[in-house]
Each structure stands twice: as C-alpha cells, then as structure tokens.
Design a protein around this nucleic acid. Structure first.
Length: 195
DNA sequence: CCCTGATTCGC
DNA sequence: GCGAATCAGG
C-alpha cells in the first residue's frame, strides 16, 4: 500500500476528527498505526487542534532561543481533547433502568456495529448476571472505551450518574457477555417470551 | 495488559 | 519517503 492522494486525504480528515492513529490505520487498511503516525509527522500535522483557537501559520522566527531550563524529560505534549458529544438531555429516564434493545451508545465515530443474529432468549439468569455485572462495571467514560470494552451505557446521561460498563467485550461485539445477552434479542424471542 | 503518540534509523 | 522498532507515557 502506498500513500495515494485519497488515502492521505482520509488520513488528514480522520486525524483532524481526533481519531487515533490505530483507528485510522484500520480504516485505511494495509498500514499499521506506526505508519500512520509516521505519515502524520511527515505531513507536519502532529498536533491536533485542542478545540480552541490555534495559529494557522507558524511564525518562522522564534524570539526565544532557549525557553526550557529543564535538562531532559520535558515533554511539550498537546492534549488531544477529542470532541465531546455533550449529553444533550434526551429524556431523563427515571429510576426505571431497563434498556432492552438499546444498542447505540455514543461511540466516537466507530464502525456501524452490524446487528448480530442471536438465538438468545433473555433469561432470569442473564438479568441477574447483568445486575451483578453492573455493580462491578469499570465505569469507563466515553473516551476510555475501546473496541474491546463493553459499551453498554449505565445510568442517566443527564447526570453524573452515567458511565459505560467497560468490562471486556466479546470479540467482535460491542458488549460484554452479560450485556450481549440482553442486547441482542431477536424479535421472535421477545414475542415468545411475552407468552 | 490495554492503549496513546513520538522518535529513531535502516531501508 | 517510508514504517518497524522503540520509547515514553496513561
């Protein structure tokens, strides 16, 4: 694979969007995150806009030759500060926490997450398991989610009482075992259960 | 251990 | 120019 104009464009766009190098690499395919990072540096867009105003063009002449007294170890690193999807209070759900087919947590521009077929029926054990699991949830924030962490939302997004499960997700699935069990229910299964 | 970006250096 | 290996950090 080579850096065609199109691929570079995708790289630029995603990098600007705050996507991580590994995410970009996966999107492009045929390259590693190292390749992406390397390219990013060669393109000279290493620091992403922290959300606020940033200088467009670089002042070529620096007045300060040596502004750093520290001998080593100092890292002038700019925080990414990814776009945070402010929780636009939808419907302040009461204490009634029973999200059945709720499957679409706010994931940072992730993949479509195709629906998985499942011959699962929601069992009392599964429900109990979920309750239990949610007590032990890692309580991750949006930014801490990865492809292998459960993205099941817990709590009320309109309050601080909100986080994501964060337990290890099943390979290829967005949720942990317990949450997959209640998330993916075929219509038929639900109907049958309503007996 | 999972992940992040930064840097180096042989190719 | 490229990117694997490595580094430095969360």
């Amino acid at each position: 694979m080579s850096w065609t104009d199109e691929r570079v464009e995708t790289l630029k766009r995603m990098w600007a969007e705050g996507q991580s190098a590994s995410q970009i690499a996966k999107e492009l395919g045929g390259v590693t995150r190292n390749a992406v990072i390397g390219k990013v540096h060669r393109l000279g867009l290493s620091n992403r806009a922290p959300g606020g105003r940033e200088d467009e063009d670089e002042a070529p002449v620096a007045a300060k030759p040596e502004p750093k007294p520290e001998p080593a170890g100092t890292t002038a690193r700019a925080e990414p500060a990814p776009p945070r999807p402010a929780p636009e209070r939808p419907v302040a759900a009461p204490s009634n926490v029973t999200p059945l087919p709720v499957r679409k947590p706010i994931v940072p521009a992730g993949q479509p997450l195709p629906p998985q077929p499942s011959a699962n029926e929601i069992s009392p054990e599964a429900l109990a398991s979920v309750r239990e699991v949610e007590k032990r949830a890692r309580r991750l924030t949006l930014m801490e989610l990865t492809e292998r962490t459960c993205k099941w939302p817990i709590g009320d997004p309109a309050t601080d009482d909100f986080w994501f499960c964060g337990l290890p997700s099943l390979p290829g699935k967005p949720y942990c075992e317990a949450h997959v069990g209640v998330a993916f229910q075929p219509m038929s299964a639900r109907r049958d259960r309503r007996r």
